[in-house]
Amino acid sequence: MKFTGRMWIFPDKNINTDQIFPGKYTYDPLTPEQMAEHALEDYLPSFAKEVQKGDILITGQNFGSGSSREQAVTCLKAAGVAAIVGVSFARIFYRNAINNAFPLIPCPEAAQYIFEHADVLKDEKITVNLIDGTIAIKDKTFNFPPLTGEALNIFKAGGLLEYTKKKLAQKK
């Protein structure tokens, strides 16, 4: 549970679920790969074409605000995004991420630092370690509280779907 990847730096506040995954697609039955084609479509139309597997997003305050649509998480994950380090995340988006075993790391210190030094850091790689709760970029390291308890169990199971599968199997 350690990722190193290129960064996409999005300091804007309140990037919402409509920008991440537009409402007009929410009731179309799409595969995760098809959802990935619309990732961040209303925020940065070129994103879905240019994103590479293992990329990490650095985001501003209240990322993922708005709708409960889980596709906002699924489309980013399917697009290959490995993790998001942000100032803060909206509640349902955060929950959906845990339930889909997609790492969101609220770490305002790291995010602010990257925003402030974006011109020198933009081509650097960032490393996120979920086990010891560290973020490393160039010569700087930041700490964040790692997941614990039931949230960690769901994450470890590979998401709520797998977690529930196991629980149901145990019952039988």
Binding site: E70, I92, N99, L160, L168
Partner: peptide, 18 residues
């Protein structure tokens, strides 16, 4: 309390969530 789709499916299945 608002939740996501996977959680809704999980509640349908096991009747509870965190």
């Amino acid at each position: 309390i608002p939740i996501g789709r996977t959680e809704a499916a999980s509640i349908w299945a096991i009747g509870q969530t965190w």
